[in-house]
Structure formats: structure tokens, C-alpha cells
Design a protein around this nucleic acid. Structure first.
Lengths: 342, 342
DNA sequence: TACCTGCACGAAAACCTTTTCCACAGTCAG
DNA sequence: CTGACTGTGGAAAAGGTTTTCGTGCAGGTA
């Protein structure tokens, strides 16, 4: 080690000086530090890791990094870990088990201290491996094994809060337009909607929950369906922001005003969709960054030997904008409003 | 090494067997391989890296990972590197020089073989460090130092192609609505627009390029301005897809049809905006994935000692959808069309 | 002076792999 | 029979850091 030579001490002493460990004269310590500074010394993390048996590195396997959900989760993970001087090895598995297997081997060969699996979907996924020697935490997409550590948003609670808010601002006839029925998140969100309505002694407006795809086009279409079935409709809870935007546009085309006639609330708080819509949308934020942070925190716990099993549900945040009325509702305006006959 | 013990050979021999190096009897080699398989042996990349003096790891510093541009770039980088068995250390610098400095030190301590800086903006950024011992390539956001290796899309060429396409389908009065004038990309794209028009002997329609912000709201507003200034407008080239979408909506509100009356082309090919718009938007795809891939390729070259300096411009791809007419133009329809009086 | 205590630092092992050099045995040719 | 050559595998060093143990020296005490 050239720092030791320059400071005129042995490598062991230099190491102690740099890490503040042994009993050194402060004069010696200062000399070593000065030498390190002059030489721009950076301790070789490979050597350190080899010795300590751990790398201070964590693997992040994104199943579907293209999707917009894993990105904020990833950033939350990275945020939490970098604070603990832990680096993140990023792998994009693309939902392909073979790729994932390859990445897993690569990460294990690099002696990562732990692995975070950030999925792209809401439905549970099979565990990434069995009998692994390093801890694994699943973020956003839970593992199908309930004993695995998973961190996910509370979809049901979010939808419940959304509808509770609609009822809280005086709405009574609430419709629900969502995505494909087979998604677990769709099921959970519908459950939350029903629970909020039931607690208020209300029924869902319209022919029932409307299931379609996650698109604006479906939202526009659903708006017409809903209005035909229930002309007195005064609120719609949507499965995501794109649908909400479509519903808003559809209602607008039908001559209704948002939020005066119908309040609309979305889900996801995808800002480009919700905040920049023609009428900025109230929505439910799943705190994905927080999901990532918490997952990283649990991983650190597990690395330190205090592993916690099971799935952890993180609360969603209500984000209120104009589409549910920034102020108290002012009643339906006078004058004719174009509505399709029932 | 337990594999060596189990196979009844020395560690050196085991290493040779696993890497296919020395002159070994095939029987011995098979025995070692079998032992490694049974024990699930994965060579310690830390030890290997320590010995070889390189880590087969590359640092990726994203200046603004929240932005939607750096994500595809990142994925392209990861794609290209993982094929070469190189792992990616992901750091989110958030555009904060202090954070970046911290990450830089962390990466250097980990003995990365190179660094890719994936920015969030189009304007050049200051180099991440000087006198670095590892090669650096800037992707998407170039370095201000022209001697640094940078890989960026050809904004000007993309805009040129967009307008050339508009002219190619018979449009003559082309407006340009873009983002904030001080952005380099805005300047470059406008340059491409002017060049395409000039080559056809045409002038820009409207009062000149309209500069605003990157929003749909601005697009809607600009549509009205443009139409008031040039009622014969038959095409608009937009600075990005959000603006294009706004322009389309604005024109629609004014009673014009897209693409029959006015063709519209966006920029970015942000699919959720362009492909899912009410009228799917033709747009310019900057091939961000390819930018990432090429940047990674140049980094690998530099790691192998064949560094190339300077900025490399990658061509954009035209993505044609309905907003510029999927078929030949059919002429303006008969009947009154609501237009503001000039 | 002889011995002990404690401080400050050095020496060396350990982490795991790769690679180079060397040794041993067997074979073939002279 | 001896020398040389080839095929196979072992021994050891190197890579940079941390940590443990040991050593030398100074100062104090008997």
C-alpha cells in the first residue's frame, strides 16, 4: 500500500489509521490521513469484501423495468440502501425466468448481501429461488410463498379511502370502472370500493363494477355505459388514472361537468396522467418509493440477522385535486344538461 | 476450496478444470465439474476481481432517473452489458453534484471498469470528474467537454424527418409548437424543421415557432394561436408528444379533424401519450434503448483500450400512425367548419 | 540496576481465485 | 540403459485489506 509507504508506516498501521481502529498516536494518524488524501486513496472494496465475506452490495432484480411501477420502487430501494453505503446491482429480468436465473447466479457469484425482487405486476410471482443463502425481499409484486418477505401497497385500503372520500364530499351514486377482472389488484380495489359503500349503506351505481382494459378508450366507453345504466350517477371510482382520464373525457363528451356533475377519482397517481389532465384528477398514490424504501429496510434487517417473514401492506395516500372538488360541492347547476335517456 | 477437496485434486487444478485452461485429463476435469455441480459452486467474483485488477462491473450514474428518458437508456445499457457478463451498479444522482461525487467515489472504490452517465436532460452537463482512471461515456445528456465520449440522439435529424414526412404526404402549411426556447433540444428540433421547409422552398406557418412548456395545456393553447394566425394550417410539427396531444385536442375543440384537416406529428414516441391518444399520433422515436446500447458498446471499447472521443449522434426513427394519415390525404371535407376568423 | 507495565506500531495470516512454474512419472528413442 | 520429452497435476505467489498477535521501547517502580 503506497499510502503506508508515503506515511512511513506499515500497511496494518495505515489501515488502523484510516478506519480509526487501533491505538495510534494522533500524529501518526494525521500523517496517514494526509498521505491518503494526497494520493487520492480509495480502499479497494473488492479486497475488503473478500475479507469480510460480504460485499456491501445488494442485487435488484426488476422483473419488468419497462413498466412504470418498478421504477419508483427501484428508486426507493436505491435511496434507502445508498444511505447505508450499500451499492445496488441492477438487473432487468424482463419477466423471463431464464434471464432471472442467470442474473441470480451472477449476483450470488458477486456475493451480494441480499436481493430485492421488484416485480412489474400486482399478482404474486413464484419465488426466485429456493434454499438461497442470502435474504430476499419482494417489493411491489409479492411472492406466492407467504413465508417470503414481501412489501406491497394496500390496494384495498386505497380504494376504500377513495370511495370514502367521494362519500365524504356528499356523493351517493358511485360507479366503479376498472381493469381486467383477473388481476388481483382489480379484485382488491373492487373489494375496497364495496366495503366503503357497504359501511355507508349504499349500493354500487351502474350494472356493477365495469371491467375492461387499462386504457383511456375503455374509460370513455365505460362512461357511456355507466351513465346509461344510472343517469343520476354523481361519482366514479376508477381502477387507474388512465381509465379515470377516459371516464372524464367521456363524461365531458356527454355534456357533464367534472366535478360539478360527477366526481372522479383515479388510482396510481401517475402524475403525467392525473395532475396534467384537463381537470386534474384526484387519485390514490401507492407510495411506491416508500414500498421500495421499506423493502430495502427489511432486507437490511434480514442481512443483520433479524429476518421478518410474511407480507407487509403499506398504506396508500389520497391525493386530492379538482376532479373530486377542491371545495365543498355546490349542487348541480340549473339549466339543461345533455344526458342520454335511460 | 471444497470443490478441490471433494474432487481429490489441488485448488489450482480445480481452477484449471473449471476454466478449461490447463492440460488436464478429461477424467479429472469431469470429476471437478461434477464436484462443483454437486456443491453448487459459484466462483467468488470478488476474489477474481481482486486478482485480475478489474471487477467486470460498470457504474451507471443516472442524473435524473425519475425522468422517463433515462429509463430506456438505462435498460439499453444494461442489456448490452449483461450480454458481456458485466454487471451494472446503479446510482441515482438526482442531478445533485454532491450526490454524484459521493457515488463516483463509491464506484471507484468498487473498482468499476467504467462509468456511464445517463442524464435526464438534453442540455450538455459538466463532466463528472477530471483525471479519472476509468473510462466514462455520457448517454442521452452529452458532456460539455467535446473530448468526452457522448452518445445522443440526432434531434435535428429527427425533426427534419418529421417535417419531410408531413411535406411528403402533401402538406404545405406547417406550424411548429415546441417547449421552452432555452432548451438545446428545442433549438435543434426547430433547426431541423426549418431545414426541411427551406429545402422545399416553404415558410413556417403561423407567427413563427411557438415556444411554451412541455404540456398538453400549452398544446391546446398553441393550436388556437396557430389557427388564428394561419387559418389554412394543414400540419403541425410538435416538440413532444404531450404538446402534440394538446394540439390535437385543441384543434378538435375548434372543429378541425385530425388528420383530415390538419396532420400532427409529435416527438419522443412516448407510447402512452402517442399511441393511446384519441387519434394515435405519428411521432419521432429517439431510439433511447439504442442510445444506451451504443453508449455501453463504446464504454466496452474504451475498457479494452480502444477509446473513441467525441459526441456520436444516433438517428431517430419515424413512427407513423393515424395523425399524419395512414393513407393518402383525401382533401378537406365539404360543409362548414368552425374556424376562428383570422 | 533489574523488572514490570503499557503504549505504539509491525508482522503475518486470512479471504479466494488464477496463473506460473516446477516436479513427477511414464514413454520413447538412441 | 540412459537421456529426453510429454502429459498431468501440485505448490506457491499475487492481489489489497483487516485483524490479531507479538515485539520493542520508554517510563516507572522496587
Amino acid at each position: 500500500m503506497d499510502v503506508a509507504v508515503r506515511a512511513g508506516v506499515s500497511v496494518g498501521t495505515a489501515s488502523k489509521a484510516l478506519n480509526g481502529h487501533g491505538g495510534l498516536r494522533s500524529e501518526t494518524r494525521a500523517r496517514v490521513l494526509a498521505a491518503a488524501e494526497e494520493l487520492g486513496f480509495l480502499p479497494n472494496a473488492l479486497a475488503r469484501g473478500l475479507l469480510r465475506g460480504r460485499s456491501f452490495t445488494v442485487g435488484l432484480i426488476a422483473s419488468d423495468a419497462v413498466g412504470r411501477f418498478s421504477i419508483p420502487v427501484m428508486l426507493g430501494v436505491e435511496d434507502a440502501l445508498s444511505a447505508g453505503r450499500i451499492a445496488v446491482l441492477f438487473c432487468d429480468g424482463r419477466g423471463d425466468p431464464i434471464r432471472e436465473e442467470h442474473y441470480l447466479r451472477s449476483l450470488l457469484a458477486r456475493r451480494v448481501d441480499g436481493i430485492i425482487v421488484a416485480g412489474g405486476q400486482t399478482d404474486p410471482r413464484p419465488p426466485i429461488g429456493s434454499g438461497l443463502t442470502v435474504p430476499v425481499v419482494y417489493a411491489w409484486t409479492p411472492s406466492t410463498d407467504p413465508m417470503d418477505a414481501s412489501v406491497v401497497p394496500d390496494h384495498e385500503g386505497g380504494a376504500y379511502a377513495a370511495v370514502a372520500h367521494l362519500l365524504g364530499v356528499g356523493r351517493q351514486r358511485v360507479g366503479h370502472v376498472s381493469g381486467p377482472q383477473q388481476f388481483r389488484s382489480v379484485e382488491l380495489r373492487a373489494k375496497g370500493v364495496f366495503r366503503a359503500l357497504a359501511e355507508a349503506g349504499l349500493q354500487l351505481a351502474g350494472p356493477g363494477p365495469l371491467y375492461g382494459d387499462w386504457s383511456e378508450a375503455w374509460g370513455r366507453q365505460a362512461a357511456a355505459i355507466l351513465l346509461r345504466s344510472c343517469p343520476e350517477l354523481d361519482a366514479v371510482s376508477c381502477g387507474n388514472d388512465e381509465i379515470a382520464r377516459g371516464v372524464a373525457d367521456g363524461l365531458r363528451d356527454l355534456g357533464l361537468r367534472v366535478p360539478d356533475d360527477v366526481a372522479i377519482i383515479g388510482f396510481d397517481n401517475w402524475e403525467i396522467m392525473s395532475a396534467h389532465a384537463r381537470v386534474p384528477l384526484s387519485t390514490v398514490d401507492m407510495s411506491l418509493h416508500e414500498v421500495g424504501r421499506v423493502a430495502a429496510g427489511r432486507l437490511l434487517q434480514a442481512i443483520n440477522g433479524a429476518a421478518v417473514h410474511g407480507t407487509q401492506y403499506l398504506p396508500c395516500q389520497l391525493v386530492l385535486r379538482e376532479s373530486t372538488g377542491l371545495q365543498a360541492r355546490s349542487g348541480r347547476p340549473p339549466g339543461p344538461v345533455a344526458r342520454p335517456s335511460p
